[in-house]
Design a binder for these strands. Structure first.
Lengths: 326, 326
DNA sequence: CTGTTAGCGCGTTCAA
DNA sequence: TTGAACGCGCTAACAG
């Protein structure tokens, strides 16, 4: 029942090939026949069937987006950036959550192949060989988003995490902090976080740097752990791996009877909306979350259209935003 | 180059129809030939092409998801629910943001048609005739998610917002509040919010109910407006339409030199993670955000598979979660 | 239980 | 500048 390209052709008294031509601008069509076709399309309310197009052209104008979890503020913002640019270039996105589980992450590349996506924007905490193998086997252009390939084989968009770690430490050191703690997930979970930790450790004098590991990165899990830590350790500066951990840090400090920022300065990574909605407002190393997504998607479109790209491993800028917690 | 069903057929020495049968379980296949096919599939690493399947079967196993903005915490949680259940039933989702713009919301239904989605999960603040017309014209099953169709023509998943408003008011009234303010977006923007407001107003004595309108619903925009309001009005109870507005309310109260909850009790709708991460922790009318998405998607699968459904307009339960702000 | 044969709706040669 | 014909990879009758 749905009107097809044949119906339009009949209505306009041309062949379907001609309709296809005006639709795609593939070849020059005489102006008046073009008008006839356009009128027929309008009259019948014709809409091209993207699935049929996909089969015939082998291009679906669909991008696979694989992320750990959209419900995380950071990720949601990234996805928004991806979708905006995708829309701008007339692509749609198929969104999937991997829950950061390797097996699922790898499997999803396969199902994205089945869906015949033109490309993939990929986000994971820790890229390993299995991922790269999956990309290779699927033969689909991939851009890593806020995800690092240690060997830089896959196009990616990141900030300089090591440098960001250094900047955070330098910031606190300059303001008189002597003993600094880094609150983060356990080593090995997130490459980015570990990179930042390395940056911090490279600047803070040995013996004055502490690493506090929180399994889940969630506020409610972190709070008690942090309280215990602060009871045992006398730090005067804290860098948290996320806004949520930053807030937990602030509250933990306060629960220990100390003040932020007078007794302990706290800063966090990310700069989600949370950072400006709490009191004291949090000083942060702001990450360009939206741009992670937007730039990744833009890079992918370049790859797909064989446009020249200046860099396959884009580094975006991070900045320290000073607020009340330091 | 990619291996097709023909390659598998040749390898297994059967016809492609048989391969299709073992793939889809469409008909009984003798056990040993089935094994041969399976082996061939494994050997060749065959993956069915979903686009070709979609064209032939007219079913894409893809669901269109149209939301105002994924980067909003509430929405992101809903989307997560949708995606989880979609995955469970072997569907994928195409996610798009409408920014709550009517024209775009309507257009997106058309582009979803082009993509040949099997169904749509739809979220908007205010459903009007144009939406319904678009659904009708597209002839695609739609489930409204956290969105109300006043005339109940479209399947939907909601809470009872009027009752929720009443419950909020009753809760504050029972605790001694006399003058209650409802902090929300302007009338007409969100049907749900207006419904709640009506519920509140129906319980709070006339002259003791105040409606504070905040254009954007964002914390930073609400804060100054609320401070001004609180300076002029002596309320002792506040109901906010979202956690973000609730937090703005709390801070506004504090900025006016009053205490929460001693001088003014504050409660909010939603119960996003924000509610438990701030101090005082917020009392909320908890909304089942994840379930909005999950149940919507489940309902859609029932519609798509002609399973019997008990109710086309599902009402989920809301509950008051008492915390420190009241 | 299995193979043959049409399409699905469109892009894309190749001729005209 | 236009049309006819083929094929994309698969599902779904229809035979056998």
């Amino acid at each position: 029942m749905p009107v097809t390209i044949y119906d339009v052709a009949r209505e306009a008294k041309v062949s379907m090939a001609t309709v296809s031509r005006v639709l795609n601008g593939t070849a020059v069509v005489r102006e008046d026949t073009k008008q006839r076709v356009l009128e027929a399309i309008a009259k019948l309310g014709y809409r091209p069937n993207a699935v049929a197009r996909g089969l015939a052209s082998k291009k679906t104008r669909t991008i696979g987006v694989i992320v750990p979890d959209v419900s995380a503020a950071f990720v949601a913002e990234v996805v928004r950036g991806i979708e905006d640019i995708a829309t701008m270039y007339d692509y749609h996105i198929i969104l999937t959550n991997s829950d950061a589980q390797l097996q699922r992450e790898v499997d999803l590349v396969g199902t994205m192949w089945e869906k015949q996506v033109d490309g993939i924007v990929y986000m994971t905490h820790r890229l390993v060989k299995e991922h790269v193998d999956a990309f290779e086997q699927a033969q689909i252009p991939v851009v890593l988003c806020a995800t690092e390939d240690p060997e830089r084989r896959i196009p990616s968009v990141n900030i300089d995490n090591r440098r960001a770690g250094k900047d955070a430490a330098a910031y606190l050191l300059e303001r008189g902090c002597q003993r600094i703690a880094y609150v983060t997930t356990p080593k090995g979970v997130s490459v980015l976080s570990d990179r930042r930790g390395a940056g911090l450790a490279s600047v803070v004098p040995k013996g004055q740097f502490f690493r506090v590991e929180v399994a889940s990165g969630r506020y409610e899990h972190a709070l008690p752990i942090l309280k215990t830590f602060l009871t045992d350790h006398n730090v005067d500066g804290i860098v948290a791996a996320s806004d949520e951990l930053g807030l937990a840090s602030i509250h933990a400090v306060q629960d220990c009877g100390k003040r932020v920022p007078e007794d302990v300065k706290v800063m966090a990574f990310d700069n989600t909306r949370l950072a400006t909605m709490v009191r004291p407002e949090m000083t942060v190393i702001a990450q360009p979350m939206y741009d992670f997504g937007a730039v990744s998607m833009r890079l992918l479109t370049k790859l797909l259209h064989d446009e020249p790209v200046e860099s396959y491993n884009v580094i975006l800028q991070h900045i320290v935003v000073e607020r009340q917690s330091t």
